[in-house]
Design a protein around this nucleic acid. Structure first.
Lengths: 340, 340
DNA sequence: CGTTTTTTTGCACTCGGGTGCAAAAAATAT
DNA sequence: ATATTTTTTGCACCCGAGTGCAAAAAAACG
């Protein structure tokens, strides 16, 4: 039994090989693999046949070199533990692949790694960058702009800097809707659990939230600082708060900056000896939120659309900077209902 | 104020530009950026200076084209929700970047997407593939072998097929150690919660587990099938079991195929009205396992070493196929202690 | 100082494919 | 059948580097 299949000799099959076999010139082969190119049906057929037989696949590096377009897109991520980010990464990479792009993972752990990743990506002549990282500040993003003049898109995060392309959910509106929900539920003492940095994305959310409360004649009673997005932090932050507050003055409802914190908060409530009536609302609609042990009411971001838009913008290379904010959707489960 | 920095004219800076500025030929420039190449100190200095001034960076596509080496590595992942896998992905991408490789994300959602991803990766002339996916069977891996003769490495998963390079944790030994732990704790009725497919990785774990029990004169009392790795499934599987079993015949200890299932199981225990004494042990040591609300006893895999080894093997392109199995480590927390 | 050895450099050509243009072939019109 | 238009095709040359080899320059030697 021969081990080697007939197709793959050791040397790689090139367009010239195919040309020879098909009895045409290599340029005709090239045309066969370029859509929109002028080629006769007969030649096309022969080339495709020969290509099939030889197992030929165009070398994309060579193509990129002359076309000056690589179809490689860098995905800048910085918190590979954040499940929400991951959901985004997942969606982005799938959609990119589906459209023939190759996602290059730029995993950022420090400013140094950020810079070297950018440099490397630059040298690979990537066509664009999508920023998914949460702690990537506008300054860092701008740093990328300087290195290379390719389209950059900040996804899933807002930015005050008008010079940066943003595709994200309308945080103000989201906050507003959640405020309305809680107010209409009749809660009076309403709090907010904040994450790590006060950056634009969250501020807009908070602003909308405050505006909504205000419109119903309420004010934000309290802000709990949880720090870094981690279940543990939500857990601790709420416990800290509950331990230091008399039961009758406690918050009745709590809007958490994201689902992870909210779930931490729910865990805290559950682990307490006494039953504490507290409505909790999250943000992001991660998978765990739907789980029967949480039933977290939250706000769903239109992930697919966002990603779709982001990629489209990359593709057209539209340099007209616009901030696209799509509306998300409130997801009512049961955690926003007080258990009292 | 001039907007444009002096450095970056619109056209890209090439080696020829640098050569001209440095008063040498472009080949000398090439040598300056190739370590080990013969170049006079003076020329080197001038070239580097000119390169710096012009902001030159070698075009890696062009280099790859002639060197026939791209430094691009494909990461084949198939469950972007699995936190354990993500931890691995994170580590792999970091280490790759640190060593100057570019990780290309091949996110697999179906057999079709798998094939097209492989083809694309192939066309990009990637240097190697690392398989992180859990449901990627040996057959699929072999499919990749046929496409292109580049090093493939299955990481974090075992394989029965001796033709496949594997870098993974020694599952047999792990199962054995866990069995010992539970047996020594005095439990008699010991069960196992299984995940989706019975593939090699898990079978070895289970075999080791059984062997360990056997050595202590015990047998595996029961296998609970949870299905796909998801907290929810562990939760349901355990509830199903508890609902259908009389309290006095119940298992005393349960080894779950991974932490996610184990955590689901713990949640199930917690949510029950009556307190049920059941020792639970997981596998993987994901972040959540250490959380104060779970305190899951589990088995830690030597992630960094595994990744390090995997990348090293890719780099040398060692075609001598060996299966490397490193020992992991038992992590004792409190979930293996019965609450009765 | 001439000669031999070593280091450095330039050049032609390669990697694998893509352009634009002009010649050749085919299709349409007269 | 001839003239005209359209489609196909081949070719020279480009993309941005790297390689081997031979010429040139520098260093070591007598």
């Amino acid at each position: 039994m021969t081990k080697k299949t007939f197709v793959s000799a050791d040397r790689k099959v090139t367009a010239t090989d195919v040309a020879e076999r098909a009895g045409v010139s290599k340029w005709t082969v090239s045309r066969a693999f370029t859509d929109g190119a002028s080629i006769s049906p007969r030649a096309l057929e022969r080339v495709l046949g020969a290509a099939e037989e030889l197992g030929y696949r165009p070398n994309l590096l060579a193509r990129s070199l002359s076309k000056k377009r690589t179809n490689m897109v860098g995905l800048v991520v910085d918190e590979m533990e954040n499940p929400n980010l991951l959901q985004v990464l997942n969606e982005v990479s799938c959609q990119l692949q589906r459209r023939g792009y190759m996602p290059m993972l730029l995993n950022i752990t420090s400013e140094y790694s950020y810079k070297s990743a950018l440099t490397l990506a630059d040298q690979f002549q990537i066509d664009g960058l999508i920023f998914l990282g949460t702690v990537l500040t506008d300054d860092l993003v701008r740093l990328a702009q300087d290195i290379r003049h390719i389209p950059l898109i900040v996804l899933y995060r807002n930015s005050d800097n008008p010079g940066i392309q943003v595709v994200s959910t309308d945080g103000y509106r989201a906050g507003y809707e959640i405020a309305m929900l809680l107010a209409d539920q009749g809660y009076q003492r309403i709090g907010y659990m904040a994450g790590p940095v006060s950056e634009s994305t969250q501020l807009q959310r908070l602003d909308g939230f405050k505006a909504g409360l205000h419109e119903r004649g309420l004010v934000l009673s309290r802000v709990l600082d949880a720090g870094h997005y981690a279940r543990e932090n939500g857990y601790k932050a709420l416990n800290r708060y509950l331990d230091s507050t008399a039961p009758d003055t406690r918050l009745e409802a709590l809007f958490c900056e994201n689902d992870i914190l909210a779930i931490g908060a729910l865990d805290a409530l559950r682990n307490r000896a006494d039953t504490i009536p507290l409505a909790v609302v999250g943000f992001d609609d991660i998978e765990l939120a739907a789980s029967s042990s949480y039933e977290l009411t939250t706000y769903h971001q239109p992930l697919q659309q966002l990603v779709d838009e982001a990629i489209r913008r990359l593709a057209v290379g539209d340099s007209a900077v616009r901030q696209l904010l799509l509306p998300g959707q409130l997801v009512l489960r049961s955690s926003h209902l007080s258990k009292a």
